[in-house]
Amino acid sequence: MTTQESVDPGRRKFLDVFLAGSGLAALIGLIYPIFKFFTPPDQEEAVVSSVNLGPAKDFPANSGKIFRFGNKPGLIIRSADGKFRAFSATCTHLDCIVQYDGKAGDIWCACHGGRYDINGQNISGPPPRPLDQMSVNILPESEEILVTLELKDKT
């Protein structure tokens, strides 16, 4: 059945060892990415429809801050009376980013001087419509601020 001459047992043994070794190495090469895959990444979960901006006490009254919301900039305002409000920070006129004007207590776009009131309503200058609103929630225990895109009827 077998021809001893054609297959040298030493060579056969070597081939088996070679196969086992390379097979093991390849297996490790495949398991490594899977192992890495399951190691929790630095950022623990996908950013979905809300953003945590950290503790409320980090925001002084009568100030505003730009934050990232998905692929859009957002503006969170803490008005002089301590209330939080959040809007899409993209000016509805062109694509500039609006800012909080603490002196006037309203929102201002530096590009063409458009102004919105503290509720995001366009009050003067070129902006054709109000800023898109976001809703702000303060988490009960940690007192962290959670900004969520407000559901609006887009139809």
């Binding site: 081939l15 070679f18 196969l19």
Partner: peptide, 24 residues
């Protein structure tokens, strides 16, 4: 490249093994 080398080694090994088996 690393995976191609590793898988390539196994593939070559298998190739030799196949030849060996079919000779048998």
């Amino acid at each position: 490249i690393i995976m191609t080398v590793l898988l390539g080694m196994v593939i070559i090994g298998l190739w030799l093994k196949i030849n060996q088996v079919s000779k048998k």
